[in-house]
């Protein structure tokens, strides 16, 4: 589903944020992405969402190299990638329902279908009773779950989360992680960047570790290019 082959990313005017990163995440696989602050976790996730382009190497989603796709194609790639942000990125002047409906409105679903799917998604994260609330009236954990409902409402095959439990208490963090597991069980590839090593070890999934932009654990050590040498 997701493949990185010797991917490097250099931001203008700084050294490599990622260097020679190779790994694979199969369909329906869940993995944690960990590493010290500044290790390049967010950079890696952004490459998958085409928020940035790789300096070198190939980023493949479903065997399509998304490193060089045209600007026009980017939205369609992003529709296959549900992203959950630490700061939620919700629209505060819209109701919970409208926030969650946004990806469906964008892809042009008929009205009735939107209502049905939004409620199913809100039900999944346990916020069905809050559909008419404004996000500002919700707690941090609830807002995070609204973000998750929005990310999964159009059933993307890939789910990315950047520190989704950053400032939640351990119990809530666990609940959210279990929610991700449920998506994984229905075939979604899930990649979660997190600092929370305790929680990661408890969950027992694949762990990708970054250190100064290099993948020190969980990656592919014999990337295709290496084999050829």
């Amino acid at each position: 589903m997701i493949e990185f082959h010797n991917v490097s990313k250099r931001y203008p005017g700084s050294c490599d944020a990622l260097s020679q990163v190779s790994f694979k995440l199969a369909g329906g696989e869940m993995a944690f992405l960990t590493g010290h602050s500044g290790a390049g976790k967010s950079t890696l996730l952004k490459l998958i969402a085409v928020l940035i382009r790789p300096t070198n190497g190939q980023v493949l989603i479903n065997n399509e190299n998304i490193g060089h796709i045209s600007r026009r194609r980017i939205p369609y790639v992003r529709r296959n990638v549900g992203i959950i942000f630490q700061d939620h990125k919700l629209l505060f002047d819209r109701t919970v329902f409208d926030n969650v409906a946004l990806p469906l409105v964008i892809s042009g679903l008929p009205h009735r279908e939107i209502g049905r799917r939004v409620r199913a998604s809100l039900d999944k994260v346990g916020l069905l009773n809050k559909e008419k609330s404004l996000p500002i009236t919700l707690s941090g954990g609830q807002q995070q779950r609204v973000g998750i409902a929005r990310a999964v409402v159009n059933k993307p095959p890939i789910l990315l989360a950047d520190e989704p439990t950053g400032n939640l208490d351990p119990e809530l963090s666990r609940e959210i992680m279990e929610l991700f597991e449920q998506f994984q069980q229905v075939g979604v590839s899930v990649l979660i960047a997190s600092h929370d090593l305790d929680l990661i070890s408890q969950m027992g999934h694949k762990v990708l570790t970054l250190d100064e932009g290099r993948m020190t654990a969980g990656g592919m050590h014999n990337a295709p290019q290496d084999k050829l040498r």
């Binding site: 969402a49 928020l51 026009r72 939205p75 369609y76 790639v77 992003r78 529709r79 992203i83 990125k89 919700l90 629209l91 946004l102 990806p103 964008i106 892809s107 929005r150 990310a151």
Partner: peptide, 16 residues
Amino acid sequence: RDEIEIIKLIGGTDAF
């Protein structure tokens, strides 16, 4: 601005 940014993030086309 925020709204536009979010719509772009979740795959809204320029036309949209």
